[in-house]
Nucleic acid binder design. Sequence first.
DNA 1: GCGACAG
DNA 2: ATCTTGTCGC
Length: 229
Amino acid sequence: MSIDLVQLKQQQVEYAKRIILRDEFNFTIPKLIGGTDVGFEDGGRVTRAAIAVLSYPNLELLDYQLVKMPTTFPYIPGYLSFREYPALVAAWQKITHKPELLFVDGQGTAHPRGLGIASHLGLLLDIPTIGVAKKRLYGQYQPLAELPLSSEPLLNKAAKTQIGYVLRSKAKCNPLFVSAGHRISQLSALNWVLTCLKGYRLPEPTRFADAIASNKPLFKKWLTSKDKS
DNA sequence: GCGACAG
DNA sequence: ATCTTGTCGC
């Protein structure tokens, strides 16, 4: 079984046309916000997908899902979603109280064809999503100020359009690449990330999903404190 | 032709 | 992403 990248590329182009970059949260406040993170085991043969469910505006971890399944697609820059979405969709289906807004680890529209994993997943699940990536995949930007919470537009120079933001989420840390996923505006995506920052480089939904997927102290602490209550 | 390249 | 200890800086 081989991979037809030409066909998948065309699929991305078609899907990208369906992405909605209109804000649906200007007058609606979510009660639940989710975050995703994906990891791998056994040399990449097993995919681990975590979804964290947080309350809003308290941003406390309420629930989570962690699913493992065989990896079916390699990592190819620009085609990350085909590797990670099956496990994420499976985790999503197991969640009882669905978040109304999902922070996805990876790009949204800041992608060569405007369909990063955040946009792709948002379209598949038909929910508002925001792309929060730790590295740049596509786009150019001006030097970013050191001042915390400063940002720069991320641009598609060829098309002369903005595709996201580069955000200094914490002092002396590498910036985040924030872009709209689906059913949200670019500026609103940035504002929601700012709203969910709590003094760490990653916004809370992403930080908890990361802790769950990698079984970090933050998550272990939550598990034990949950036992007692 | 060469370098860049989410996780 | 993952393999991994100490270490530098705030």
